[in-house]
Simulated scan of single mutants.
Amino acid sequence: MKKGFTMIELIFVIVILGILAAVAIPRLAATRDDAEISKAATNVATAVADITSYYTAQGKLPSDITKVTNVALDAQGQMKVKTTACIKFEAIKATADDADKGVKAGDPVLQVTAIAAGASDAACKGAQAAVKKITDSSPIRLGGSGVNFGDDTTTGTTQP
């Protein structure tokens, strides 16, 4: 008599493998989304630090925000999570509407906002939730406490 597996044994093995795959595949997808969310949160923190450092070093708002940071931003200053535009960065002057955030109109600020259209993607939605503290505290005042790189009114000299 030949030795081998019966048809019933093979079916049981296939069913068990199917159950394991049904459990493992959604977990794998969730792990990938978690990695994208973590990467996005790190990129937001890096971009905020880069833009703040640029203003501190140069004393002016960047004309092209994409050249100030190594974080991948499109021409509109939008950062993508996977393929969805998710978070927007703008280095602008504050408006009177920003007074409740502790900045005066005309102060240089970094505006970090969640893009509503991206909230349908799970990874984008997670990234927006991960950086909610930053977007809620936006606009972020640049330049610390009254840094002035222009004319020095106390001595009458002009700084380079």
Results as ranks from 00 to 15, higher is better:
A122N: 08
A96G: 00
K101P: 05
D98A: 07
Y54G: 06
K132H: 02
K88D: 03
Q78N: 15
A99H: 02
T42F: 02
A116Y: 02
C86A: 05
D107C: 12
A75T: 15
K104Y: 07
V68K: 12
A47T: 07
V81Q: 01
T155R: 07
T31W: 06
T66N: 07
D97P: 00
A47Y: 12
A116I: 02
K133V: 06
T66G: 11
A99P: 00
P26M: 12
R32Y: 05
D100F: 09
V103R: 05
D33Y: 05
D121K: 02
A35K: 14
F12D: 09
K88W: 00
S38F: 01
S138M: 08
T83E: 13
T69R: 00
Q128G: 03
G156R: 08
K125F: 03
D98M: 01
T42A: 14
E9P: 06
V112W: 04
I87C: 07
T46G: 01
I92W: 12
A130R: 01
I140G: 08
K80W: 04
T154D: 11
M1D: 09
D33R: 12
D151P: 02
A41D: 13
K3F: 13
T6S: 15
E90L: 14
A127R: 01
V68N: 11
V68T: 13
A22S: 11
R32I: 11
E36V: 02
A72C: 09
G146V: 12
Q111A: 15
A122G: 07
P62Y: 03
V71C: 09
G118Q: 04
D121M: 05
I14S: 06
D97V: 03
D107Y: 14
G77A: 04
G4N: 10
S137H: 02
K88F: 00
A119E: 02
V13Q: 08
T95V: 09
